[in-house]
Design a binder for these strands. Structure first.
Length: 733
DNA sequence: CCGGCTATGGTG
DNA sequence: ACCATAGCCGGT
């Protein structure tokens, strides 16, 4: 056995050789150090993972290359961060290097040492330049009894906390107070200042939250103590925020799912707002759930703190938390990292975990100011005039609201004017030539747009197949509802005598930078009376004067084949309903209208009672009987290829080659099937469901399958395969 | 007969 | 990931 000091580095290379590559170095390096290493003909960023005396079997010193340099002045990524990355790579079946590099700001790859030194200097100066004033007792609002109780329970909690709070119950204030408590806890000498991570599902929701956190914490903790981290920022901004978090000058990081990987050496609290939201699940690269990783990360950080942070800094895995450790009598609690999951309609996974006692459920059923949740009114479309898009009673109700100076929200989850354009003579439809989907008719710019691949053309003047001039929109989108409502409300006057104004807010109307803010301002100032929009308007925004919310087309989700569709519909409608009646002065009279052909559907019956617990219990019973998550465990093997045949062939060969792998007998491999939208951008898509009742079996099976899948890539039957991927804990199957 | 683009392989 | 190399169609 030869002994020489080798440096194991996680690099972007991720096929063939393995998860890490081994180098030599004259420099003394420790795990977590950021280095530049030669890889092929280039030099890439890498993370030092291990520094063993005995290099991997069969690798000679002469065959290794030398570490090119260290990113000087940057503290090493700590053991908790590395453990999070390692776990994510294993759990979601990706290479260590891929996950590690994806977790770092892309700009870090291009920085040379002088640029980095300049940035770090600027950081230090900025941090020193803003002396934090003594934290005031930050006035905030008075807490409701429910909020105070939740905070008290949170302070003593040792398990992940599920904050089940109605829309308008003041969850954000709880986040702010919990953050404040953490930031005011002085970190021991030689330890990083305490930090908090707050995640939201969408970029759109960050500005509002950022404003509240800045207002609350910057006076005490200095400018720059609150930073954001999301994909909408420029690479330079992301690097700045990342460095601030990594060096500890940022105390609060607000961000989307990617923020779960931020380097936070003093992390003591992770908040996951709207924890049920599907946006927390990544859909490319490592398909991680930021919510699940938040729970895992808090556990790892807690264990490290319990074991003594210094031990972990360079050490291997954190030690497990001893039984009963964490909370001590009299409310004195050991240093730990908490995780707080908040939602008015928690995910069934979290709800189930709370049922089992793995999470602590805290409830805040009441709204701040005592306002009632809006009354649900179901409009039976069977009894409306034929062809009516908007039921006359709904339009009348909206008119009354507007006349009283109140606002309305109309929800339709489909942008554009109409989902299809069709020829009534020959049956032509506006299909996309590259996808198995229709192109959507956008009337405003006279285009047909494919919402899957982006292919856009001007609307043809006549039918492309038969020349008939009579081509017409079928179905409706937000543009059409906006247009129709403007017509239907034309005689309605606001209290100031002005005619009613209708506006639309969706991905199209907010595409330009700053236009979301402009639109929200128009609504807040009362310029707009009716806002038509996609689910974007249902999420998070604080609309004060809205007293009527209407769902135009909820039925499509009622009978969707996706078993999570009811859960998503319930959450969306509850969330939308929550936009109404937030202003206590106008509460009591607020309403949520839903147009449906199935008013007796059980989902609406529970929704009417705002009874999420009943809905969850019923859904969980169904899931248990069917062996579905959270009782069963799933993964998807996805394949993209030039032909459907090749995609399915890859999946079928992969299934055949799985014979004899560990736990194969506990795993069900379903037949390969095309995706609902089979072809996107001329790529055929297929998938295979992997199901089992044991998470451990699934993990071990998938790990053993991985090399087999790599090998199946070159099977002759699978010629034309573009790419494949494993999706662990998929959200839609 | 050379050059560009796409599939395939390798990186310590 | 990214780069290098090998394999398939077009121009002069």
């Amino acid at each position: 056995m030869v002994f020489w000091p080798s440096i194991v580095v996680a690099t972007p290379a991720h096929s063939g050789v393995g998860a890490t590559l081994t180098y030599r170095s004259e420099l003394s390096l420790a795990p977590g150090a950021l280095v530049r290493v030669p890889l092929g003909s280039r030099e890439v960023l890498g993370v030092v993972w291990d520094c063993p005396d005995t290099p991997p079997e069969g690798l000679t010193e002469a065959r290794t290359k030398v570490v090119a340099g260290v990113l000087e002045g940057l503290p090493a990524l700590n053991g908790c961060w590395r453990q999070l990355v390692k776990f994510s790579a294993q759990y979601y079946q990706r290479s260590l290097g891929e996950v590690a590099l994806a977790a770092l700001p892309p700009q870090l790859r291009e920085l040379d040492s002088t640029q980095l030194a300049r940035r770090l200097k600027r950081r230090a100066k900025a941090a020193a330049g803003v002396p934090p004033t003594a934290p005031e007792a930050l006035q905030g609002h008075d807490l409701s009894a429910e909020q105070a109780e939740a905070l008290q329970a949170l302070a003593a909690a040792t398990a992940p906390v599920l904050l089940y709070g109605a829309t308008g119950s003041g969850k954000t204030e709880v986040y702010l107070r919990a953050t404040q408590a953490v930031l005011e806890t002085a970190a021991p000498e030689n330890e990083a200042p305490t930090q908090v991570l707050v995640m939201v599902p969408e970029i759109n929701l960050t500005p509002q939250l950022e404003a509240r956190f800045r207002e609350r914490f910057e006076p005490a903790f200095g400018a720059g103590s609150v930073v954001c981290l999301h994909s909408g920022m420029t690479p330079a901004q992301r690097l700045t925020s990342w460095l601030a978090a990594h060096t500890g000058s940022a105390r609060i990081v607000l961000g989307t799912r990617m923020a779960v990987f931020a380097s936070l050496p003093g992390l003591r609290l992770i908040v996951v707002d709207e924890e049920h939201d599907p946006s927390y699940k990544s859909q490319e690269g490592a398909r991680y759930s930021a919510r699940d990783l938040a729970v895992y990360r808090a556990k790892v950080e807690s264990e490290a703190l319990a074991a003594g942070g210094a031990l972990l800094q360079a050490g291997p895995h954190p030690r497990p938390l001893p039984e009963g450790e964490g909370a001590r009598g009299g409310g004195v609690v050991n240093p730990r990292c908490q995780v707080l999951l908040g939602s008015a309609t928690p995910s069934l996974e979290s709800w189930h975990a709370a049922d089992q006692g793995r999470y602590l459920r805290l409830e805040m059923p009441g709204r701040i100011g005592g306002g009632a949740l809006p009354r649900l009114r179901l409009v039976d479309m069977n009894h409306q005039p034929k062809g009516a898009v908007l039921a006359p009673p709904l339009v009348a109700a909206m008119g009354e609201r507007i006349a009283r100076g109140e606002q309305c929200l109309v929800l339709l989850n489909r942008r554009g004017y109409a989902p299809v354009l069709a020829c009534h003579d020959c049956g032509w439809k506006s299909g996309c030539p590259h996808c198995s989907a229709y192109r959507v008719f956008h009337k405003l710019d006279r285009t047909l747009r494919c919402h899957h691949c982006g292919f856009t053309e001007r609307v043809p003047r006549a039918c492309p197949d038969c020349g008939n001039l009579d081509i017409a929109p079928v179905g409706r989108g937000t543009e059409q509802i906006e247009e129709q409502l403007a017509g239907l409300l034309v005689d309605v006057k606001r209290p100031d005598g002005q005619p009613a104004r209708v506006a639309r807010m969706d991905a199209d109307s907010t595409r330009l930078k700053g236009s979301l803010e402009v639109q929200l301002a128009a609504l807040h100032s009362g310029e707009v009376d009716v806002l038509v929009g996609t689910q974007m308007i249902a999420k998070g925004h604080d609309f004060r004067r809205i007293t009527l919310v209407a769902g135009i087309n909820a039925d499509s989700a009622l009978f969707a084949s996706d078993y999570r569709a009811p859960e998503r519909l319930f959450a969306l409608l509850m969330q939308a309903a929550g936009r109404a009646g937030r202003d206590a002065a106008q509460s009591g009279a607020s309403e949520m209208w839903i147009q449906t052909w199935y008013p007796q559907h059980p989902l609406f019956v529970t929704l009417k009672k705002h009874d999420y617990p009943a809905f969850a219990a019923e859904q969980l019973t169904e899931r248990e009987q069917a062996g579905m998550p959270p009782y069963g465990f799933q993964a998807l093997l996805r394949a993209d290829a030039r032909t459907q045949q090749a995609a399915q062939a890859f999946l079928n060969i992969a299934a055949e080659q799985a014979a004899g792998l560990p736990h194969r007998d506990q795993i069900t491999l379903y037949p390969a099937v095309p995706l609902t939208i089979q072809r996107v951008a001329n790529v055929e898509r297929a998938q295979m469901l992997v199901e089992t009742d044991s998470r451990g079996a699934l993990q071990r099976f998938l790990s053993a399958w991985q090399p087999v899948l790599h090998a199946c890539r070159s099977a002759p039957e699978a010629k034309g395969l573009v790419r494949w991927a494993v999706d662990v804990d998929p959200l839609s199957i």
